[in-house]
Nucleic acid binder design. Sequence first.
DNA 1: ATGACTCCCAGTGGGAGA
Length: 255
Amino acid sequence: MKLATWNVNSLAVRLPQLLDWLAANPVDVLVLQETKLTDDKFPTLEIGAAGYQVQWFGQKTYNGVALLSRLPAQDVVKNIPGFADEQARVIAATVGGVRCVGAYFPNGQAPGSDKFAYKMGWLDALRGWLREELQQHPRLVLMGDFNIAPEDRDVHDPVAWAGQIHCTEEERAHFRGLQELGLVDAFRLFEQAPKCWSWWDYRNLAFRKNQGLRIDHILVSEALRGAVASCTIDKLPRKNERPSDHAPVLVDINL
DNA sequence: ATGACTCCCAGTGGGAGA
């Protein structure tokens, strides 16, 4: 079973690239973030024609998530149950016996800001919900744009980024909290080249200079850990004209 | 360097992203 996550930064703009990518990478499940579409504008026909069923949960202008799957998606959940949230950030479903959770974690803007406090509260709620979800669904994959660089090796310039948003100790403690639930960073199950990022700033020729962060992740539950065959970041779409600032992350699980 | 780019909604500018 192949699964992937991609922050597309506007599905309206990126739909042609998404369809091209799916044709080249016919994954079983793909979760999207930052669709930036109200639900009435979601391109169900085009995605259906590509051979995917789709669940979607959006809002105007910001955020918005979707889950594409070859097989039917069951027991769909939108956002974190019990956590009142105006922002469309989570979509979860069971596909082929695997609980798939796609999430667009809050950015947080800056430590100490209201948005940072929202990020911390959201992370608390996510962890509480996933603890229960893992008891119900031992085979679970959490994937998305975490907006957290877990370690200094996930940052192109750890000195410049020290204490900055995505790299604070509070955010990294939350990432470890997810790991303490038994979720494993699939990318780090394998030897990886140094300086692998999933996001590069649009400014400053950051992609050309490979100045980025690894903030998009796929975490698998303990029950799946031994079955993970590979986990990679696909930089190719970042070379497109009008690319998303994020690259897709893929995992292959032997099921 | 409080920037740089891209997206959105707006409407010839500004917020948000990361």
